[in-house]
């Protein structure tokens, strides 16, 4: 059985894109703009998460130990913590370490800590633990309260819950953005392909009479959508690169308290994401348009 030449389809798609160049350029620019907005939002979400994680407060509990405990009792509490459900990591900070950390944090006032050294050290030995699941955090808090030898538990559940809901909110907005931009881009592609089909309707009619299969007729149009998607993805990637690198520099020089991912860490995801979303949008847009405008 004879087979179609794939270069024929690519050639037809490129010719058609060239013939409807105004609409092609418009589609590419609109889809690229949508991708840039989407990509910027995704990167913003990634950076927000990075900074929230940097706060270190999200899932951390500070446990103050009774000052009278000996090493064996501390060891026993450590073993108990290790066996508990929902505990992710455990860090022990002795009162001497605690004082050193405090001195480092308040380097300008190190003189003040002289009186607190040695036997006079008022700080307790501590454990910092992190948990895995915020939903089970209250249970963990209760279980910790049951352990002998613990004098105080500092638990930022409220803050953790707030940050968690903020992250969920941002993710929700992100998903709606994704859907909205996908729909807008689809409409643009649908119209571009509609115009392409209209421009070639006589040709399509003749193709039908000659005995062209539906696949033969629609493949160039689907490819047209895919090419628009790929070009948009590539343009959006380079634009995003430029925009993000600029913001990265501004943050690094002017807002040092915030951290951002270097673009090189995320570039592969951005490129793949743009090309994938662009291609899928192009192919789906073309298919919908063909279904509506070409009763092959």
């Amino acid at each position: 059985m004879s087979r179609y030449n794939p270069f024929y389809f690519v050639g037809q798609a490129l010719k058609s894109l060239w013939r409807n160049s105004v609409m092609t350029v418009a589609s590419i620019l609109i889809l690229a703009s949508c991708l840039i907005v989407l990509g910027s939002f995704a990167l913003l979400v990634a950076d927000i998460n990075l900074n929230l994680d940097q706060l270190g407060l999200m899932n951390e509990i500070a446990i103050y130990l009774e000052p009278t405990l000996d090493d064996a009792q501390v060891e026993e509490i450590y073993d108990t913590l290790r066996t508990m459900d929902n505990v992710d990591s455990i860090t022990y900070v002795s009162k001497e370490q605690g004082l050193e950390e405090m001195k480092a944090d308040y380097a300008d006032y190190s003189d003040l800590f002289v009186i607190a050294e040695g036997e006079e050290n008022p700080l307790p030995d501590m454990f910092y633990i992190t948990y895995e699941d915020i939903a089970k955090a209250t249970t963990l808090e209760y279980q910790l309260g049951e352990i002998e030898g613990i004098s105080k538990i500092i638990f930022r559940l409220d803050l953790a819950a707030q940050i968690d809901s903020f992250k969920s909110g941002v993710s929700l907005v992100f998903i709606w953005f994704l859907v909205l931009l996908f729909v807008v881009s689809l409409f643009v592609i649908i119209n571009t392909i509609k115009i392409a089909v209209h421009a070639r309707r006589n040709e399509i009619n003749v193709m039908r009479y000659i005995g062209a299969t539906r696949t033969f007729i629609i493949t160039p149009f689907i490819l047209e959508g895919v090419i628009i998607g790929l070009l948009s993805g590539a343009i959006a990637y380079f634009a995003e690169w430029y925009i993000y690198t600029y913001i990265e520099q501004v943050v690094q020089t002017k807002i040092r308290m915030l951290e951002v991912y270097p673009f090189s860490d995320l570039s592969a995801y951005v490129l793949l994401g743009f090309l994938l979303i662009g291609t899928v949008t192009g192919a789906v847009g073309s298919s919908i348009s063909l279904r509506r405008n070409l009763n092959a």
Binding site: E203, R208, Y209, G211, T213, R214, F216
Partner: peptide, 20 residues
Amino acid sequence: YKVAHYRRQLGVVFQDFRLF
């Protein structure tokens, strides 16, 4: 789905030629 295959049995000529 068999229409294309059927039409290959036919050669069609139109009044307005319909050339590209």
